[in-house]
Each structure stands twice: as C-alpha cells, then as structure tokens.
Simulated assay, not measured.
Amino acid sequence: MSPSRTRRILVCVALSVAGGILAGPAARADGFYEGKSQGWFFYDDGRATAPVDAVEVAPASRVAVAPVPAAPAPASAPSSPEPFSVQWLSQKMQILKLNAMNHPTEGNLLAYMWAQRMMLDMSQNFADVGSKVAAEDPYLNEEVRFPTAAAARSNALWHVDRAREEILTDLSAHAGLWFFFDSRCGFCQDELPTVKALTDKYHFPVRYISEDGAPLQGMRPEAMVVDRNHGTFRSFELKLTPAVVLVVPPSTVMIVAHGAMAQDELQRKIVEAAIDAQLVPQDLMDAAQLEKRGIISPADLDRMKKVAAAANTDDPAELVKLMREAVGRRMPGVVQGTGGHQ
C-alpha cells in the first residue's frame, strides 16, 4: 500500500472516531447549544437531581425613598470694608507697604505714605474727641482722679502723708512691732536704726527677737528675747531676716517686711497692712489711698460681672452707666454732672 493511501485511510478513521464521539449520547448534536448557558466551569456527574418545586416569589413591595435635601446655598462672600474706613485702610496699608518694600518706586512709596497719612489723621480725630469727652466727664478726667499739675499734686501728696502719719500714730496705741534678726546678718544690723527711728517717732512698742540667741551690735541683751528652735519664726512662715511683723492683740498678725528697707518704705507698708486688716477709719483710708482713687478693684469687677449678666451690654448707654457707677463708688466727693466738682 502506498504511503499516500495509508495517510488517507488514517485520516478517514480519525474523522470517523471524532464523528462517533460527537454523536454519542453524552453529547448530542444540539447539546452544546442547549447547555451553553451553564458556562465553562459547569460539571454534570450524570446523577439525577430531584426536581425543585417552583416557588412563587411575591413582587417586591414598593419602598418609599426619602427625598434628598437640596444642597445649601453657598454662603455669600463677606462684604468688603467701606473705602477709607479703619478696616479698609488697615488692609490697604499692608498691601501698599509690602508692594513699596518689594518695589520701592516713587509711586509705590507715595501711595503707601498717603494711606499712612489718612490713618494718622483719623487717629488724631479720635484723640481730639477722646480728650474732649474726658475733660467733660470727671470720672474719666485724670486731673480730677488725682492731680497732675505740680502745685496741685504736691498739695495732694501732702494730704496723703498727713493721713498716713495719723494712721501710724493711732495704730501705735493698740499695736506693736516684732523685729526678727540674726546677729550674723549684716542687713539686720543696717535695719536696726530704721526700726528704732520709727518707734521713737510713733512710739510703737517693739519686741526684738533673736534667731541665733545673740544681740545685734549696740543692743542690750536684756532688750531682746530668744526664739528657741525658731518656733515663732516658723509659725509666722517667715523666710529670712530681718523681718518686721505688725501684731495687734489679741490675735492679728501681719508680715510687714522681709529684708532691709528705708524708713518711709517701712511706714508705707505698715499703713497698707493696717488698711488691709481694716484697722483704719474709712475717711483716713480714703485719704491715705488718694493716689488709688477711682481705680477699679477685683471686687468691683466681680460685682460688675454679676450686674452685666442681667444687663444689655450691647447698648452703649447702658454699658457706660454700669461702668460709671462702679468708678463712682471709688471716687467719693465727685458729683457726676455737667462738669463735676470736688
């Protein structure tokens, strides 16, 4: 048999076998088209599958959908400041200044300097009206609160010194001073003459208390007492020597001074301690604190906060009334009117 014939026979056999496979019961001519929806990965093991009862599916109920709220309208851009207002000039000056510094031409410098001139003129107008308002309102007038003119100020300070002198004289009749020292302390030695001068002038009884058991130079040993184990020093919470303590029987104790100081400073501190302890009549207290007249205290501010909680502080007139009443309580003798008087 020739080779060509043999090849033709093999081809026919192969085609017959292929045709038999395609025509077999597992793969009918129309099986591919019928099962193509099962996909490439479908596998049928040939076992029968129990029929599944048809289940009637109810149509899905209609679900109400809430309407989507409309997007908020975009916020309107803030309005620009009014030309030649303080806000407008402040912004404009910053721009003009940077421009003039980056590009220092005559035109750029001229623009900036003219804007600056406008701001200075507005500041001057503000100051002029402010001076007029302060001159007409005694509670805002610093000349009324405490004189600034040389002659008037000198006279006012004389009244202050006189009131302090009277307070010290009255206080010495029912209070005393305790002077704590250490014989090795040079500042204690320097402060001793000051304490003696003060007691000689106002006749304060003084107790000299030694922390090391020895007297200062020029002090008689019998004129002092020794603070054993620093008990009194610690009980008063003193920090160093020399120290001066104001003692008012039966139980009032006030630290007046730590360290050495001049006599007038020591006198001032004694007066302030007596005022803080409310040991001074109101008239002398006001006279001795004349320089502080009209100054709002922390207690005044606390009172103002409580009043402001129920007031309309957005109303300028009501706000001024609240502040004027607070200052008025600190300025006795001044009557609010057209010009006020002392």
Rank of each mutant, 00 (worst) to 15 (best):
E291K: 13
R330C: 02
D300I: 08
G294Q: 04
A311T: 09
G294M: 03
R293F: 03
K306C: 05
Q289S: 10
P298L: 02
L290G: 12
A310K: 11
D300R: 06
M331G: 11
M323N: 08
D302L: 12
A308S: 01
D315S: 12
A309S: 14
D286V: 06
D286L: 01
R329M: 07
L290S: 07
K321Y: 07
G328W: 00
P298E: 01
K321G: 14
K306P: 00
L319Q: 05
R303Y: 00
M323K: 12
D302W: 11
K306V: 10
M304A: 13
R330I: 01
A299V: 06
A326K: 11
I295A: 00
A308V: 07
A299S: 13
G328Y: 00
G328D: 06
P332H: 01
E291T: 11
G333P: 07
L322G: 14
S297D: 05
L322N: 10
N312I: 01
M285S: 10
M323Q: 14
R293V: 10
D286I: 03
A311E: 04
D314N: 12
D315M: 06
R330L: 04
D286Y: 13
M304D: 02
D315N: 12
A310D: 09
K306Q: 15
E291A: 13
D302T: 02
M331I: 15
P316F: 10
L322H: 02
A288Y: 14
A308N: 02
T313F: 12
M285N: 09
K321M: 15
I295R: 02
P298Y: 01
R303C: 08
V307P: 01
P298H: 05
V327H: 02
M331R: 11
N312F: 02
G294H: 10
K321N: 09
D286K: 00
A308E: 04
L319T: 09
